[in-house]
Simulated assay, not measured.
Amino acid sequence: MKKLKRSARLVEMTQYLMSKPHTLIPLTTFAERYGAAKSSISEDLAIIKEVCESEETGELLTLAGAAGGVKYIPKSSPDKALPLVQTLCAQLEQPDRMLPGGYYYITDILGQPGLMNDIGRMFASAFANHDIDVVMTVETKGIPIAYATAAHLNLPVVLVRRDHVVTEGSAVSINYVSGSQKSIHTMTLARRALKERSRVLVVDDFMRAGGTINGMMDLLHEFNATVAGVGVLVESEDVSNDERLLHDYVSLVRVGTIDSRNRQMSVKPGNYFDKQE
Results as ranks from 00 to 15, higher is better:
I143S: 11
P113D: 11
T140I: 05
M116K: 06
P113H: 11
A150H: 02
A151P: 01
P144T: 06
A148V: 00
Y147P: 09
D131G: 01
R121D: 00
A146K: 10
H130W: 01
E139T: 08
M122F: 02
E139G: 02
F127R: 00
G142D: 01
H130D: 08
I132H: 00
V138C: 09
G114N: 05
L155N: 13
T137C: 13
V135P: 01
I143Y: 07
V158T: 14
F123E: 11
I143W: 10
D118A: 15
A151G: 03
P113K: 13
V138W: 05
A150P: 04
T137P: 07
A124P: 03
G120Y: 01
T140A: 13
F127K: 01
A150V: 02
T140M: 11
F127M: 04
D131T: 08
V134L: 11
L159M: 15
H130M: 09
R121V: 08
I119C: 10
I145L: 15
G114T: 05
E139W: 02
R162F: 06
L153E: 08
H152R: 10
E139L: 10
L153G: 04
V135N: 01
N129W: 05
R161S: 09
P156K: 12
R161G: 03
A126P: 00
I132W: 02
T137Q: 09
P144C: 07
R121S: 06
T140L: 09
I119A: 07
L115P: 04
K141S: 13
A151Y: 12
A128T: 03
